[in-house]
């Protein structure tokens, strides 16, 4: 196989359940999905559907009960250190300057060269953090911290980036700014991205493919290809096809949310 056609990430029938007070709690049920080289793929699903468990399986923190994880053709199930990661909260280290924070992921995988440091500085300027290289994270706004956290993931040596609801803690205005910003950066770099969110518009704007997850246990309900051409502009959100897809996805999501609530109420009645 050549590199062009080997997917960056291939998840093949992964299942996982947790034991809780002698009951088995299925969390992931037979999940298969693919992220091609340079593809932006999103997962949307109701909150608490096991998306973070899936990320832990991909990151190698949790071993699946069944199924495999492959990256660039090699099996990496249960192995750590193959992904670059951006968590929900920025999780910048308060004792490090912004520049050192951005270089952390590289540092973990080996000594940081002078070129890498210069590269990081160039990137900081590019994402509007010029002049903050030597600042500590607490002096930055929420949006700026998220940009630094994103840069830390972008500058990681691993090819695949996993972004776990990165904008969910931001206010609506900052959030839409950050979506546009991420779209621009990605169009320029075309890294392979697995993006987890529960914001439908965000997923449609950014991704080439969207996997819709069911409520617990999480399974892939639908996989839809987002047809809008690249490079995309924000105006795409006003196109009739966009609105139609959005309505369709909202309907699926609402249904899942209803099912989950019904299951919770059924559970509490027991």
């Amino acid at each position: 196989m050549n590199k062009e056609t080997t997917p960056a990430l291939e998840i093949d029938s992964v299942s996982k359940s947790f034991k809780e007070k002698r009951r088995t709690l299925p969390v992931l049920s037979d999940i298969s999905l693919t992220v091609g080289q340079g593809e932006f793929v999103s997962i949307i699903g109701p909150s608490g559907s096991g998306k973070s468990t899936l990320l832990h399986v991909i990151g190698g923190l949790t071993r699946p009960d069944a199924g495999t994880v492959r990256m660039n053709g090699a099996e990496v199930t249960g192995q750590q250190g193959h992904i670059s990661y951006m968590p929900q909260q920025p999780a910048l280290f308060p004792w490090r300057t912004i520049e050192d924070n951005v270089l952390l992921a590289q540092e973990v995988h080996g000594p940081v060269s002078r070129e890498a440091r210069e590269d990081a500085r160039r990137w900081l300027a590019k994402v509007g953090l010029a002049g903050f290289e030597k600042a500590h994270p607490h002096t930055l706004s929420g949006g700026m911290q998220q940009r630094a956290a994103f840069l830390r993931a972008l500058l990681s040596p691993q090819e695949l980036m996993c972004l776990d609801e990165p904008f969910s803690a931001l206010d609506a205005l900052t959030r839409s700014d950050m979506q546009r910003w991420l779209l621009d950066i990605w169009e320029e770099n075309r890294r392979s991205v697995l993006f987890i969110t529960h914001n439908i518009e965000e997923a449609l704007l950014l991704s080439s493919r969207i996997y819709v997850f069911s409520s617990r246990p999480a399974a892939v309900l639908h996989a839809i290809d987002v047809p809008f051409p690249r490079p995309r502009r924000e105006e795409v959100t006003e196109a009739p096809e966009f609105l139609q897809l959005k309505r369709q996805l909202s309907e699926w999501m609402r249904e899942e949310q209803r099912k989950m609530q019904a299951a919770q109420q059924g559970g509490s009645r027991l």
Binding site: Q80, I83, Y85, F93, A105, E107, V108
Partner: peptide, 23 residues
């Protein structure tokens, strides 16, 4: 959250101690 981040990017026990837990 920081601990989870370090493990996700594949930091070893020694690195987690030196770069996160100790500071």
């Amino acid at each position: 959250v920081m601990m989870n981040y370090m493990r996700m990017i594949g930091a070893g026990k020694g690195q987690i101690f030196a770069k996160l837990e100790l500071p």
